[in-house]
Design a protein around this nucleic acid. Structure first.
Lengths: 205, 205
DNA sequence: GGTCAATCTAGAACGTGTTCCTATGATGGA
DNA sequence: TCCATCATAGGAACACGTTCTAGATTGACC
């Protein structure tokens, strides 16, 4: 269980295992991006990743785990990108938060099928996926509190309890709005407007 | 398509059809209450309701429709109960809203499996269930705006756009919190606390 | 009562997530 | 080098949502 590697933080395991894991997540990503939740069929993922079905299940114990893990990877990448971006534009916390949300939302809406697949999985997850879900939640909260203080004197202080509470509420609204959009119950414009209203209500400086 | 009936507003159809519909929803309710989402198996529902599988699908085109319809019926009943209850206790809008939310949440948490089944279905619904979802959403929004104004001079005026926006945000938070609770990712206490915080942030009179 | 259309029953059949089994490698220790 | 262990491939098998088919039943209208 350890030969010449342990380079990345990603996951433990041999290079071959890390490679399989990556191939599986890539295949998931492609299928989801192509045809959404329904197109991510376990046999299809296994085929495309060139692993056996049993191996796929050994790496990810369910379709939901698989998709939520893919989502977590996306969030990680998104977070890394944001870090490189420097200070977030906007004169008030509300403006900066809205900027970030719109940016992220636009990214998601640019790949609707993928977003549908990931959001669905997120919503359907049970406690066995709690760890992955928590990762995503923390990622989102961090992103939001960061936006609130970005470029401010308070930038490098810990977010207050109220900051975190507000971030969580915004996260909830965002998830609901995304859900409504993904399921075709509201348009992209409505989603954006609702989000903006919510941020306005919560962050009246 | 009309002999001696058309008594209730419930649904169109003969008495036998209304009866079947009720038996199906009752069976759904019982199975959900017993074993949650997974226990609501279409064959089991059909058996318990004493209808054929094909008939079940004729009444409800999918498991999700079935569960969301059951949820809508519960919300109707809840709304009727609230109407009979008279003015909602609490000196501020926030207090009244929290009162209502806690009351409803407590009701749901008293039957965790049922709540799990209904919430899951709600989250998994796509646009083909939009109508039912919209019903539930309106029901919730109405309940909340009503609570905000209950016993106030403004009681019988239309809720403002801001009222509705706030109600929607609270609804979003509630759904997320319920989701987290249902999937075992947070406790009942945490759910309540988060909700209370959110209401406090949104309704600082 | 007789007829027709709609509805219902019973159950087979199909698709996809999940589990399980066996044979075949890969790996690491003696 | 040889052995013990464990991961993988390949694919059958199973569970449950959904669809489909064939025949019985019902109810409206003559």
């Amino acid at each position: 269980m350890s030969t010449t590697n342990s380079l990345t933080v990603e996951e433990l395991g041999s290079a071959a295992q890390r490679d399989r894991r990556k191939r599986i997540l890539d295949a998931t990503y492609e299928l989801a991006s192509d045809g959404g939740f329904d197109a991510v069929q376990m046999r299809a993922v296994a085929d495309r990743a060139e692993v056996a079905l049993g191996t796929l299940y050994r790496y990810f114990p369910s379709k939901i785990h698989l998709l939520v893990s893919a989502l977590a990877r996306e969030f990680d990448r998104n977070e890394a990108m944001l870090k490189e971006m420097g200070p977030i534009p906007g004169g008030t916390a509300a403006e900066r938060v809205i900027y970030i949300m719109k940016r992220t939302t636009r990214g998601l809406q640019g790949d609707p099928k993928l977003t549908e697949a990931l959001t669905r999985a997120f919503m359907f997850a049970d406690s066995s996926v709690a760890a992955e879900i928590h990762t995503v939640g923390m990622s989102l909260t961090t992103m939001l509190t960061h936006a609130m203080h970005s470029g401010q004197p308070t930038e490098h202080t810990e977010p207050t309890a109220e900051d975190i509470a507000i971030a969580r509420v915004i996260g909830d609204v965002w998830l609901s709005a995304l859900m409504a959009w993904v399921t075709g119950r509201s348009t992209a414009a409505e989603t954006g407007a609702h989000l903006e209203t919510a941020v306005g209500l919560l962050l009246r400086d």
